[in-house]
Design a protein around this nucleic acid. Structure first.
Lengths: 341, 341
DNA sequence: GGCCTTTATTAAAACGTTAAAGCCTTCCGG
DNA sequence: CCGGAAGGCTTTAACGTTTTAATAAAGGCC
């Protein structure tokens, strides 16, 4: 039952503790003969180094925390799932483990964003989709602990982040719809993130630059969930209050799918009577009827990159990070020239 | 930058290390005065105990691993997501953290199921939906490390598990369809798990007990993915090869939803021309058209219970665990009396 | 042969906590 | 007045690594 330790290996081989440690860490200053002898004993005893002792000595835990918001079914959400996959792969490649955290009241109240780092439980933290009101994150400005905001940022605060270019997303989708001839477009997005806000801002700015006015661009805040249900409800409100709109721009694909569902139940044909454009390009966007036109955001990739940057921060290779990733339009069947009325 | 340690607190308060340690661990043998003095200093220095040192001294990491299979989009799958939510909540309540692991080739080849425990990285492991071929799990029979199989088991092997009563699920769904008058029923399930196998076994046994014959009960193995796509494809094969069937029994709701999609594209009306019954009762089962009749499996609950049992195993309160959870039928609109032909 | 370098190994000091055992006081009953 | 117990705190030895500086041995050069 007692687990073997480094001294058992040392005793078996007739060498010192440090020799064993050096062999295990592939230090070249050890002779081939001893090296082999040690590995044999390691094999024989089925020895694995105690990571806590190692962590204590090296001041590193080889664990990263990924923090997701407190939403229902957050662990079955494609948005978070893809990002987490990217993080997992990058972390695994660097021999790190990933722990899960949810930013609920308890998390905030216990200051876990700091205590996890201060107590050396994790080497760094990744925050996915934090909301504008998550001001506890500002604590990081005063310290130098490794952390990254993934696809979110706080304007005017120096917090490390990596985001998709939501300005570009807004501009591209506006240009696409304007190019098809739409002159009155409804906007569905959450305003609980600065990315959502900059998306609607740049979309509107582009449209207004093309001659549209504010009142041609009604907006509905879908709330913090960004779900199909929220998109369905927002589409309903928007279409009922603004009969003249011929297109809907949605802050993510899940809401766009919700909008499609609403339009379907109301018998409004897409794209003939109403164009719909989404954002993210999740796998399901291919299977909707009609196929969803959308802006491609590589969620897996942003997760992977965020994790790599975090590790660079931890190793001191970089001091800060503020990176913006390009996006691109994917045209499918849900957008078309509006029917002349 | 240097983090405060227990000795800084001790020095500040003019007491010994152990006194501080005892205060931090709420030991009653310390006077109220000292207790207060120490907490003040802890607050002042914003001190958090080093978890690695604590773990080393206590021989516990306060970390659990949850292992999921190597499937595409596994972190956005409702089945795993709900179970992980349950595990997360139970672990958090016990002051434990949860790390994520994927049972891919690398995981198996590196014997991570053992090394994580032997290296004291985790206190216990939870395996969700392992497949019949995951024979590396048999290693646990020879040892006494804490682990649990969640909603899976290996007949003939003494491995801790907690499962839904798939025999009951098979029997109940069979009785429901037989009661409606169906005499020829297609079965869609994965045969890569023993739960899937026992489901189809008990379903068939019940039907045969009611006078049906083997050839009235064609079965299609949907493969290891248990996804909508797999369900759609399996339904196609089954319906094309067996025109006489009037109902489909599916191993989970996702495949049932895929089957509904196939039937819809072929213009086969549900439930008039074909009844469909699913399994799990995921949230989406309420929103399908028609609403999906299914067997309710409380996935969150099985995750929560599995984690609690794992912690009991770790604390030595129990030696083994083999628990079976009851299920119940949820009748919606996707099943009905077959049209007489 | 003496001196310097290189190579292979080790002793010992961290790393920051817990816990068993022990040491003073103080209190109490006889 | 003494023995024993209880309360409050400390001493010290783990826990199992890494790492720096030191040591010993061997080899090369003059």
């Amino acid at each position: 039952m007692k687990r073997p330790t480094i001294s058992d290996i040392a005793a078996e081989c007739g060498v010192s503790l440090s020799t064993v440690s050096l062999v295990l860490n592939n230090n070249p200053r050890i002779s081939e003969a001893t090296r082999e002898k040690v590995w044999k004993a390691v094999e024989k005893f089925s020895y694995y180094p105690n990571v806590q002792a190692r962590g204590l000595a090296m001041c590193a835990s080889q664990v990263l925390s990924v923090v997701v918001p407190n939403l229902r079914h957050v662990f079955s959400d494609i948005y978070f799932g893809e990002i987490i996959s990217g993080i997992y792969d990058a972390a695994t490649q660097a021999n790190c483990k990933v722990i899960l955290d949810i930013a609920n009241e308890k998390f905030v109240e216990r200051h876990e964003h700091m205590s996890l780092l201060k107590s050396r439980r994790v080497d760094g933290m990744l925050f996915i989709a934090s909301s504008v009101e998550h001001e506890y994150l500002f604590d990081f400005e005063k310290t130098s602990y490794p952390f990254m905001l993934v696809n979110h940022y706080f304007p005017g605060h120096s917090l490390n982040y990596i985001v998709f270019d939501y300005n570009q997303s807004g501009r591209i989708s506006a240009e696409h719809l304007l190019g098809l001839g739409h002159r009155s477009i409804g906007i569905i997005t959450g305003l609980n993130t600065y990315t959502g806000r900059s998306l609607s801002e740049s979309f509107r700015t582009t449209c207004i630059g093309a001659g549209l006015s504010e009142k041609d661009l009604p907006l509905t805040d879908c709330g913090p969930e960004w779900s199909e249900g929220a998109g369905e409800e927002a589409a309903r409100r928007l279409v009922e209050a603004n009969p003249s709109i011929t297109a809907l721009m949605c802050g993510n694909d899940r809401m766009a799918i919700g909008a499609l569902r609403y339009l379907h139940t109301r018998g409004i044909r897409v794209p003939e009577q109403m164009s719909v454009i989404g954002m993210d390009d999740i796998p399901r966007a291919t299977y909707t009827t009609p196929g969803l036109t959308t802006i491609h955001h590589s969620l897996y990739e942003i997760g992977r990159l965020a994790c790599e940057r975090l590790l660079s921060l931890f190793r001191g290779e970089i001091k800060t990070c503020s990176e913006v990733l390009p996006v691109n339009l994917v045209v499918r069947e849900s957008t078309a020239t509006p029917a002349s009325r």
